[in-house]
């Protein structure tokens, strides 16, 4: 049973530490996106990487349209892995929608988690005027899904083909194939719908695990207003505004990402867990 889950989610375990640290990729990505960041934690933590069912090198036969039609299904993947490895008090690091997946998992089994680190999270991408600004209108999100289709996202080898005339970068090619090419177009579309049309705003106040929100500058996917909303509604959360721009600081600015996570975890280990004093914005 345990072996089945580890195979299903292509779970990889590295590192020397006692405490476990699990890295959840964001929308449409597999575990290779964590390459630079995860390696930095291997000396102090047991690092766990995985792919959601339907992505990367997961067992695509385990994909079930119904289960993965909402983020709860993906959260169950995380819980299944924690149960299979008998994990407790782990540090969960999620990117983008991966953050929300971890947050949902922590509601079901708070005892599995000691800290949530969320990079560019958003509880709801849709605008809900007049009080909530998620950043997007419904048509715009459907436009993105259409654009994915027209770029054959999920079609095998489409992106990898472009690499063949770049022989000096074989490592990149392998990484790319893993990242973009093992996804099925239907799964890609269903994941997009589950991720972009989710509204988990009402879940924020129920979270009991302390959290760090890493907010990029000029992130159009998760704008600053959304990061602040998260911080206001998440009990015992800390918000850090990064110098990094864009939506993928773990790829574009791994050093800053590693530094902020390390800093947070070190502070957390000396401060009283869950103290309101942890709340605050560091610029």
């Amino acid at each position: 049973m345990n072996q089945d889950i580890l195979f299903r989610n292509n779970v990889k375990i590295k590192g020397k530490g006692k405490q476990s640290m699990i890295f959840a990729p964001g929308f449409g990505c597999d575990q290779t996106v964590w390459k630079s960041v995860a390696e930095a934690f291997e000396k102090d933590y047991q690092v766990i990487l995985f792919d959601y069912v339907g992505l990367g090198h997961s067992d695509i036969h385990a994909y079930d349209s119904k289960r993965y039609s909402s983020l709860v299904g993906y959260a169950q993947d995380v819980l299944d892995i924690c149960t299979a490895l008998d994990l407790k008090d782990i540090v969960f690091v999620g990117h983008s929608v991966g953050s929300m997946i971890g947050l949902l998992a922590s509601l079901r089994h708070p005892e599995y988690f000691s800290r949530l680190v969320m990079i560019g999270p958003s509880p709801c991408y849709l605008n809900d005027p007049p009080h909530y600004y998620g950043g997007f209108e419904k048509e715009e999100l459907f436009g993105l899904i259409d654009m994915m289709e027209k770029n054959y996202i999920g079609w095998a080898n489409v992106f990898a083909q472009t690499v063949t005339n770049n022989p000096e970068l074989p490592e990149v090619k392998r990484q790319l194939e893993e990242r973009f090419c093992s996804t099925d177009p239907i799964i890609a579309r269903e994941f997009a719908e589950a991720a972009f049309f989710a509204d988990n705003r009402s879940d924020l106040k129920k979270v009991t695990v302390p959290s760090l929100i890493l907010q990029c500058s000029n992130d159009i996917i998760a704008p600053l207003a959304v990061g602040e909303y998260m911080h206001q509604h998440l009990p015992t959360s800390m918000l850090k505004i990064m110098a990094a721009t864009g939506h993928c600081p773990h790829m574009s600015h791994p050093e800053e990402t590693i530094r902020l996570i390390t800093q947070y975890l070190n502070e957390a280990s000396v401060s009283v867990v869950g103290s309101p004093a942890v709340r605050g914005v560091t610029l």
Partner: peptide, 19 residues
């Protein structure tokens, strides 16, 4: 366009970064 802004974030810049 807005969808293109999202798409560029999700795919264009990561691809440029990697490839």
């Amino acid at each position: 366009t807005v969808p293109a802004r999202l798409f560029v974030q999700f795919y264009f810049f990561p691809l440029v970064k990697l490839e």
